[in-house]
């Protein structure tokens, strides 16, 4: 087992304009290969927490270290973290004017400077992995939501990230498409990818993740083993939340 955590967060605080504290002194460490589900009521700060981890959201206080690299104003550090942390969004955010394959290879070409034939091979391999190799030459608008999200996952994976962040990756999907995306995420977890998953899919949180962060009011209320969280939560707020959704 790894002893050095791949993510170290200490004293993370984020205050939005108007004084609302979205994150209040959050500290947590994540080890390599852990699959962490972040759950909690809306407005708890789950997405904000995730977005702070790759610098998409600027924090007000606290420290974030990703794989030994501090997330600060140093451009080199920041770029290293941006490329090593993949992110999947609720609204897919594929580039609509590019074919699926070009969506996947853009950052490979421009950031990693990999030559086009190699990029193509990587893209086709990843599309195979997410189960839609036949869609390489389609445009995003001709894909279903589930397919689009799988392309988004492939696009993030192309950069060969050490950590994957999923920000409500299945929330915008029709029910019948949720499982196809969750299956891809499940496979990723079994391959040993370090994953932080903000989700409302309690089944996924329970079965796939090995750890739960339960957040409320900008704080981590409970941080424990997934199985224990669902069978025997310690905090009353966790119990209250579970009783409402299960």
């Amino acid at each position: 087992m790894e002893t050095n955590p791949i993510i170290t967060v200490s004293g993370l605080t984020k205050i939005f304009d108007g004084g609302f504290a979205a994150l209040n002194n959050v500290s947590v460490t994540v080890d390599k290969g852990e699959v962490v589900s972040i759950i909690g009521p809306s407005g708890a700060g789950k997405s904000t927490f995730l977005r702070c981890l790759n610098g998409l959201e600027e924090r007000d206080r606290g420290q974030i270290i990703i794989d030994g690299v501090p997330l600060d104003h140093n451009r080199k550090h920041r770029l290293e973290i941006r490329t090593e942390v993949g992110m999947v969004f609720q609204s897919f955010n594929l580039f609509p004017h590019m074919k699926v394959r070009d969506n996947i290879t853009l950052a490979l070409r421009r950031v990693k400077k990999i030559d086009p034939p190699r990029c193509r091979a990587i893209a086709d391999e990843l599309l195979e992995k997410v189960g839609i190799p036949e869609k390489a030459d389609s445009f995003p608008q001709n894909l279903s939501g589930g397919q689009q999200q799988r392309v988004a996952i492939a696009r993030a994976l192309a950069m060969n990230p050490k950590i994957m962040l999923f920000d409500e990756a299945t929330s915008a999907l029709d029910p019948e498409m949720i499982s196809e995306v969750l299956d891809v995420m499940k496979n990723l977890a079994t391959e040993g990818m370090t994953m932080l998953v903000v989700t409302h899919e309690m089944g996924f949180a329970r079965e796939v993740s090995n750890r739960i962060l339960f957040m409320d009011n900008g704080e981590i209320v409970e941080d424990c083993d997934a199985e224990r969280f669902f069978s025997n939560p310690e905090e009353s707020r966790s119990r209250q939340f579970l009783s409402k959704i299960l």
């Binding site: 490329t83 942390v85 993949g86 955010n93 853009l106 950052a107 950031v111």
Partner: peptide
């Protein structure tokens, strides 16, 4: 949409 900036950012694009 803002999301386009966000996905470009998280892919490491300049």
């Amino acid at each position: 949409p803002q999301g386009q900036w966000e996905s470009a950012y998280s892919l490491g694009l300049s």
